[in-house]
Design a protein around this nucleic acid. Structure first.
Lengths: 190, 190
DNA sequence: GTCTATATCTAGATAGAC
DNA sequence: GTCTATCTAGATATAGAC
């Protein structure tokens, strides 16, 4: 055979990894199949050997992105509040704002998810519920967990929407400072 | 003359009002000039009598949307915490989630703003700063104002991204409950 | 499995008639 | 100022050669 038997799945892996970054950086609707394929050095025609449609790729991308995001905050051996605090600081960092291609899918695709097919929104719902369970475990409060999730996603959206570096920094630092209070309240509850 | 002298500005008004809703509902890149024009009963060619490009329309849309959003939370004669609380409940309502076309531009365009031209991001930055000033006045805390803004925008993004009505309600109610605590803390500060 | 080439559609934008 | 018609470019997707 002209191609090894693992060649196809390797190509699919490369395509998926590359597309996850490109889609988060440029948006799903606005990133074409040609761009996705040329990013891995191939031509658009080959795309359809791996996915039946562009929509099918989106579903695979969302699935892997959510799994990855859940993993980032999954309780580990030392899932104490301090670990959680460190992860939050990474989430609310200037680096995360500057590099959507390497970051969380929720602020990166944002409104596009809300306009997505029911299948996509179902996947997001399940992923969010699992994230919430982890955050609740760390914060010890159901409402605070949803609020912190919302705050983090919103902070990234806003920080990316402003023009100046100064404004970006202000938004991020204010959010970090405020969430510190939330963590303090969780550590020593009234 | 075949058209009254106010005809052009009336058409422009109709186009802008209609486009503001359509763009928030369907996204900017994904809503075509043909759709924008046919929504006001006209053909795509006439678009360029009013705006030199689609990008120019976006800038006008963002400008008016931000003005409107600022106005929604502007301190009025009775801008006490109770008034602010009522406005927050409207923002975090199921109706707002269901009707992006009539709601806030920030969660509706979300990531599209972050990918926008510097000119657009400059407008967003100025608008956000004015919103923040109002929220800070109501909450009495600079960091809390940025956090609440972020939380509200993020909550709308997340609530719109899930599939079931139950999940939508859960996210909204948790955010409302949590922000109530913020308001209580602002009313009687430690 | 991937390529080249192309079919088909829709986008943003322009030209010229009325 | 608006319409019809069209240009050009880009999109998703398919056909057939290698």
């Amino acid at each position: 055979m002209r191609y090894s038997k693992t060649h196809k799945e390797e190509t699919r892996r490369k395509l998926l990894d590359s597309s996850r970054a490109l889609v988060k950086k440029g948006g799903f609707d606005t990133t074409g199949v040609e761009a996705l394929m040329s990013a891995i050095g191939m031509t658009p025609g080959a795309f359809y050997s791996h996915f039946p449609s562009k929509q099918a790729l989106l579903e695979a991308v969302i699935q892997e992105e959510l799994e990855h995001s859940i993993g980032m905050f999954r309780p580990g051996p030392q899932n104490d509040l301090e670990t959680f605090r460190k992860r939050l600081k990474v989430y609310l960092s200037a680096s995360h704002v500057r590099h959507p291609e390497a970051g969380c899918v929720l602020p990166a695709l944002g409104a596009e998810l809300g306009r997505g097919a029911p299948q996509v929104r179902g996947m997001v719902e399940e992923g969010l519920n699992r994230m919430h369970a982890n955050w609740k475990e760390a914060l010890g409060d159901e409402d605070a967990a949803w609020a912190a999730l919302s705050q983090c996603v919103g902070a990234l959206v806003l920080a990316r929407s402003v023009k100046s570096e100064a404004a970006r920094t202000r938004i991020l630092e204010a959010n970090r400072a405020h969430i510190e209070r939330l963590l303090d309240a969780a550590r020593k509850p009234a």
